[in-house]
C-alpha cells in the first residue's frame, strides 16, 4: 500500500520539477509573458515545499504575497511596457559556457560542504506539537523582535514613498 513516505517523496519530486522547471522556463522562454508565468509556477512550487514541511503560515503567505501581489506587479510591468507580440526576444549571452562552468563549480563546492555538516534534525514530536504555531510567532514578533516589527513598517513606508515619487516623475 502507498505509504506516507512514498507519497511525500512523490510530492517532493513533482514540486521539484515545478520549481526548477519553472526557473528554467524563466530564463529560456522567448516570450516575456511566458517567462513571468514560469516564475509564477516556480513560486507555486515553493508554496508546495512550505506546505510539505508543515509551515502552513509561510506557505499561505508565500502564495498571498509572492504569487498574489508581487507576481501581479511583475506581470503589470510587463504588460504595460511592451506590446503583445513584441519581437521574440532571444535570451542570449555569448559567454554562457563560462557561466555554466562557474555554476557547476559552485554546485560541487556546496554539495561537498553541505554534505559534511552535521545537520540537527528536528524532533518529529516537536514538530507535531501545537506550540509551533502562528500564535507563537505573534508572541515572538511582539516580544523580543519588537523593534524589527516596527522597523518593517517604516521600511514599507519608505518603499511606498519612493515608488510614488518615481512614478510621479513619469
Amino acid at each position: 500500500m502507498l505509504t506516507n513516505q512514498m507519497v511525500q517523496i512523490l510530492v517532493f519530486v513533482i514540486l521539484t520539477i515545478m520549481t526548477l522547471g519553472g526557473g528554467l522556463g524563466v530564463v529560456s522562454s522567448r516570450n516575456l509573458f511566458h517567462s513571468a508565468l514560469f516564475l509564477v509556477l516556480s513560486l507555486v512550487g515553493v508554496v508546495g515545499y512550505y506546505a510539505l514541511l508543515d509551515a502552513g503560515f509561510l506557505a499561505v503567505v508565500q502564495l498571498l504575497i509572492y504569487v498574489g501581489a508581487i507576481a501581479v506587479l511583475i506581470l503589470f510591468a510587463i504588460m504595460l511596457s511592451r506590446g503583445l507580440m513584441a519581437r521574440r526576444q532571444h535570451q542570449r549571452n555569448e559567454q554562457w559556457w563560462i557561466a555554466a562552468l562557474v555554476v557547476l563549480l559552485v554546485f560541487v563546492v556546496l554539495l561537498v560542504v553541505l554534505g559534511q555538516v552535521d545537520w540537527p534534525v528536528a524532533d518529529e514530536q516537536a514538530l507535531l506539537s501545537p506550540n509551533v504555531s502562528v500564535g507563537q510567532l505573534g508572541q515572538v514578533l511582539l516580544g523580543p523582535y519588537m523593534i524589527p516589527f516596527e522597523v518593517i513598517s517604516v521600511l514599507l513606508l519608505a518603499a511606498l514613498v519612493g515608488a510614488i515619487i518615481l512614478a510621479r516623475e513619469t
Binding site: V134, G135, L142
Partner: peptide
C-alpha cells in the same frame, strides 16, 4: 500579513 500573528496571539 504581519498583523495576523499579532491578532492570533
Amino acid at each position: 500579513v504581519f498583523l495576523l500573528p499579532w491578532a492570533v496571539a
